[in-house]
Amino acid sequence: MSDLSLQRATLTALVIETFNVGAFTILFGACLHLIFIKKASGANHILTPTLCLIWVLSIVHWIVDIVRARIAFVDDPAHDLLYLSSPAQPLDGAKIGIYSTITIVADFFMIYRCWMVWNHNVYALALPVLCWVATAVTGWVGTAEVVLTQKGGIFHANLQPWIISFFSLSLATNVLCTLLVAYKVLLSQIRLRRSGTESTGRVIPALIIFLESAALYSLSLIALLVTYQLGINTSFIILDLTSSVIGITFSSIILRLSMADSKPSQSTTTASLPGRGNVSGLGGIDPNSYPLGTVHISRLVRDDWSNPKARHLESGVLPR
């Protein structure tokens, strides 16, 4: 299989990452405008710091890549291949460590969102949490191995088990949480239909947005796993692309769900809720009574408010 040279792959990855970081920064600013200027839904105390941390880490990762490229191609171009292929360089360890941390932070929020949807059910989250802990261990231990390895690049035999395990466990966490949230949302919809209660029609579009974002990140991880196991330099391009894709999907989903929530509801179904009288459309519910995180998905399970578990479907259904 033909492959790019390491120098060409490094420059290509930097160009793509620069473009993606710019896109992420624009989306990040739009999200902050939504959260703090328009005060959408009352800022979520988990979502907002997570979004800010991912953006900061993405910027630092990009700066590290710029410095590495300057050292390799400007300061010492005669030894650029030697510099880029040596994982013992401090900046190379920093690059891998930052990428690992971005992934771990994003996976944590995915588990948090799933935990909210499942009404704090620790049994449903047991396997994703174990995968997340294992992801953190393999990511940071793998970073230490990168720093300690003196030859062979990231494809060295000592590093492969840690790197492959890290990517695989993150993929497993993503897939498990996606399936759990999708199952819970669809199960609630089925129960509503069986009870003869209408919904606003926003659940399926929100679920599609959720699945699209999860699929994008999962596909990038699969591509990264395949190219890394093939031992080709294209994996460096996908690695830098994936680090910025995390932030782009995270912020774009917030905006897409916000725009979907801003559309007027077409439903006129009236339901009687214990202790709250009749509710028609959206006007009968005080949104402040049920904080929905940063982005409303108003009445994702529309008239099942008598079931406390259903309320949490309104909270944090924001894929990365």
Rank of each mutant, 00 (worst) to 15 (best):
F167D: 08
V181I: 15
G277L: 03
L127W: 13
L171R: 01
I163T: 11
L241F: 06
I71T: 12
L180M: 10
P49V: 09
V133I: 14
L127M: 11
W162I: 00
D261M: 06
K184H: 09
A78K: 08
I63S: 02
I232L: 11
T25I: 00
R276W: 10
V74I: 15
T149I: 05
I238E: 10
I96K: 11
V122S: 11
A134F: 13
N174H: 10
C177S: 06
R193D: 06
Q160L: 08
A72M: 09
E212D: 02
S85V: 00
P90S: 12
K151R: 11
V74R: 14
I254N: 07
V129Y: 04
A223D: 08
T242W: 07
G142H: 06
V203R: 08
G153V: 04
G142F: 07
H33S: 06
Q266R: 12
V21H: 13
V21D: 03
S280M: 15
G275A: 07
C52H: 01
N288D: 11
L125S: 03
A172N: 09
V133M: 04
R113S: 15
V301P: 00
S199W: 00
S86P: 00
Q7W: 07
V203G: 01
S165V: 02
T143M: 01
R302S: 05
L47V: 15
R311L: 13
K309I: 01
D65E: 12
G139Q: 04
A23W: 10
T143H: 02
S280Y: 05
D240A: 12
G275K: 02
H156Y: 04
R202A: 13
A271C: 09
A157C: 06
L171P: 01
W55S: 07
K38S: 10
S252Q: 09
V137Q: 09
R320F: 00
A271K: 09
T101G: 01
G152P: 04
S2K: 13
V74S: 14
F210P: 01
T12C: 02
G196W: 14
L224S: 09
T294H: 10
I46A: 13
P161C: 00
P205L: 13
T135D: 03
T268N: 12
G277K: 06
V137P: 06
D80E: 05
T268H: 12
A182W: 04
S243R: 00
G284T: 07
I102A: 10
S165K: 05
F28S: 05
S267R: 15
F210Q: 03
K38H: 09
T227C: 13
G247T: 12
T18D: 05
L211A: 14
E314C: 02
A106I: 10
S165L: 07
H156A: 12
R8C: 02
W140V: 03
Q229T: 13
S213G: 15
I232M: 14
G293I: 02
L292G: 12
A88K: 13
H45D: 00
F28I: 07
A136Q: 04
W118Q: 12
T12N: 04
V181L: 07
N174A: 09
Y123S: 03
S41K: 00
N278F: 11
P287F: 13
I232K: 08
A78R: 08
Q89R: 13
L27R: 01
Y123W: 11
S170K: 04
R299C: 02
I163A: 08
L53F: 07
V181H: 06
